[in-house]
Design a protein around this nucleic acid. Structure first.
Lengths: 112, 112
DNA sequence: CCGCATCCGATTGGATACTG
DNA sequence: CAGTATCCAATCGGATGCGG
């Protein structure tokens, strides 16, 4: 965490903690990441695996992840249209963080 | 992360990942935690160290952290009133997660 | 099939003033 | 000193319908 001097005094988007948090926060985000950790997916297969997510939100999440360079989108030729979403190297770099989130969450629950 | 079977299909508050995320999310939350990681604080010293946080938000964050069992509040006798906030054992258990957030955030930035 | 546009209710965070 | 009460603007997430 930030050093004693040079401490951030307010939430800044370029603070590393905020950067990482931004990458995984937002409803459904971690679940979308989990699915993509298992491999590539189309828009539709993601919806199949997360049946209750609305197209708008899924679309928003995928766009945000792409803008952060965590996910790539590829339009496949042919008809009907198909799309392929996959994690980038940076996206895969989130795995240890997700593992740590899981680990910490379990510790908190058992501690309670 | 959740096992192949028994995967969570939607965001549920008792999913470990959500539990951990809930503990650290919300604007200012990680900064308040950071200050408390350094030691106990009163409401006022927290405001001094985070000059731009509003009393309402600080109050909300501290309450949420208390409700999750991450922070304790102690009213000190005497006048004027003083209060002391400190991390619980569970609260201190968040340190590795904060470190991992920082580490991941830096990796994302340098990767960009 | 993909995913954007629209509408809407709920939640969030900030500013400020006030009380025990 | 330590908060709570109010008010408000902005963001968020869900439902649904339409267009490429």
């Amino acid at each position: 965490m930030p050093s004693p001097t040079g401490r951030t005094l307010r939430p800044e988007t370029d603070c590393p903690v905020e950067v990482a948090l931004a990458a995984v926060s937002g409803r459904w985000t971690t679940l979308v990441l989990r699915e993509l950790m298992h491999g590539e997916h189309s828009f539709g297969t993601l919806r199949d695996r997360l049946p209750e997510i609305s197209p708008k939100v899924l679309s928003e999440r995928l766009l945000a992840l792409r803008e952060r360079g965590l996910v790539t989108q590829e339009r496949l030729p042919g008809f009907p249209v198909r799309t392929r979403y996959a994690l980038t190297e940076a996206g895969r770099a989130l795995r240890p963080l997700l593992v740590e989130l899981y680990r910490t969450g379990e510790a908190l629950r058992s501690g309670t």
